[in-house]
Amino acid sequence: MNWPLEAFLSFLAAGSFGVIFNTPRKTLLSCGLVGMTGWLIYRSYVLVLDDTTQASFAGAFGVALVAHLLAKKFKMPMIIFSVAGIIPLVPGSKAYNAMRNIVENNYLEAITYASEALMISGAVAMGLVFAEVLMQLFFKRQAKRIQRKIGMTQN
């Protein structure tokens, strides 16, 4: 596997999706970086543990974490960064193979592919939501701690 090439291509792909979805101009680079993070996590997970569903979960989790941090930094909604980032994780080839097998009357194989595609899209969604909930918990605790600190210094 050619790491720099894949990193560059996923960066370019996510950035292009940023243009299609019309994200604000100054966030285009960050969108590309988010997409690259997601894809590299996904690929390394597949290489090490060989499980595309778990890898998609890990990739989406990474995407959501980075997107959340960038959203805090730019003071913009998180969706701007996460949408372009998860596009490379969408199970396009599995869905395509399922469709192809249905057309060729291989229904059993089609079901295999379709259920895999369903599992992967579920995993991507779960990854996004889990990361978001975790970040919210973390930031709420941090905000409380800061408030307490300010309270202490005032007293």
């Binding site: 792909a13 999706f17 979805f21 969706i79 949408v83 596009i87 969408v90 396009g92 192809r100």
Partner: peptide, 23 residues
């Protein structure tokens, strides 16, 4: 044929809708 088609239909995939729906 397969990879050409998969690559070309990627810009049409409803990624935003799926994410928003689940959220």
């Amino acid at each position: 044929l397969d990879t050409i088609i998969i690559g070309s239909i990627m810009p049409l995939v409803p990624g935003l809708l799926i994410t928003n729906a689940v959220r």
